[in-house]
């Protein structure tokens, strides 16, 4: 059965409440009198009823909601995010070498407990790292040659980030990309360590001279400064390896700019 040709579109309009009252009444009268249109109408309503089944409406997974909340800095993920498969949120914290120790534990408590602007930046950093792993947006300039990476940033940033090859320390440079953190475009340098990826964000700024570590959403954040730049590294490699990375990078930066400790 098919509806009267001049009524077919109107039937959809009636079903969707898109007809004005006069046309709706007129069409209802027609349906009452026309078996063909009445059959189509009944079928449309049956389909509508079938489509109303709540089972057809997928609910967003709780982990997705948690990740979005973390992205927008709405909650403190380490405390409120349920453990996510593969993300290792519940992984036991591993402490770095003797040089890190309890002082870091104390500063960690200080940094995690009050959740303000700092927490927001850290949420952005982790979100940036996770995004870089997910979206095939890891590298804007894929290369292991720092002579290619460094010039690529020129003109895109108002500072010149160091793009240093650290393969000798076990962290080969993969490339770089532009990211947006703390309200400004920043350089993100991508290193590999075995199967792990390490994102290093660099911009002019301050920070502790000795690397600070934080666990966030299963990733480790490491923050320090050298040569007038603030550095944030995000990865899921262990803290000892990250500390070795920071040491190697700091040495490489000092070797480049002996004047600026």
């Amino acid at each position: 059965m098919t509806a009267c040709p001049d009524k077919a579109d109107l039937l959809h309009g009636l079903l969707d409440n898109e007809l004005d009252a006069a046309h709706a009444r007129e069409l209802e009268a027609h349906i009452a009198a026309c078996p063909a249109c009445a059959e189509v109408w009944a079928e449309m309503r049956a389909l509508r009823a079938a489509l109303a089944d709540p089972g057809l409406r997928p609910k967003a997974p709780a982990a997705l909601r948690a990740r979005i909340l973390a992205d927008i800095g709405a909650v403190d993920p380490p405390r409120t995010v349920p453990p996510m498969a593969g993300r290792g949120s519940s992984r036991l914290r591993r402490w770095g070498g003797a040089g890190v120790g309890l002082a870091v534990a104390a500063s960690l408590l200080l940094m995690v407990a009050p959740f303000g602007e700092d927490g927001k930046l850290e949420g952005e950093l982790v979100a940036g790292h996770v995004r870089s792993l997910q979206a095939q947006h890891l590298l804007d300039v894929p290369t292991s040659d720092h002579h290619t990476v460094k010039p690529w940033f020129a003109g895109k940033l108002d500072y010149s980030p160091p793009a240093l090859e650290l393969a000798a320390a076990g962290f080969p440079l993969q490339g770089g990309r532009l990211d947006y953190m703390a309200g400004r475009p920043v350089a993100a340098l991508v290193y590999r360590h075995g199967a792990h990826v390490l994102n290093l964000y660099v911009w002019p700024g301050d920070g502790p001279r000795q690397p600070d570590f934080q666990d966030r959403d299963g990733y480790i954040l490491m923050h320090w400064r050298t040569g007038g730049m603030t550095y944030w590294a995000v990865s899921d490699v262990g803290e000892e390896e990250m500390h070795a990375f920071a040491t190697a990078l700091t040495q490489a930066v000092s070797a480049q700019n002996p004047s600026k400790p």
Binding site: R57, P58, A60, P61, L64, D71, I72, R131
Partner: peptide, 26 residues
């Protein structure tokens, strides 16, 4: 849920839908 439902039906891929929705909210 509306965002996820649309992404899920359009991609027919639960993982891609999550990534798309997370990025959309960002």
């Amino acid at each position: 849920d509306a965002a996820y439902g649309l992404a899920r039906y359009m991609t027919r891929d639960a993982v891609a839908a999550e990534d798309i929705v997370q990025d959309a909210f960002l």
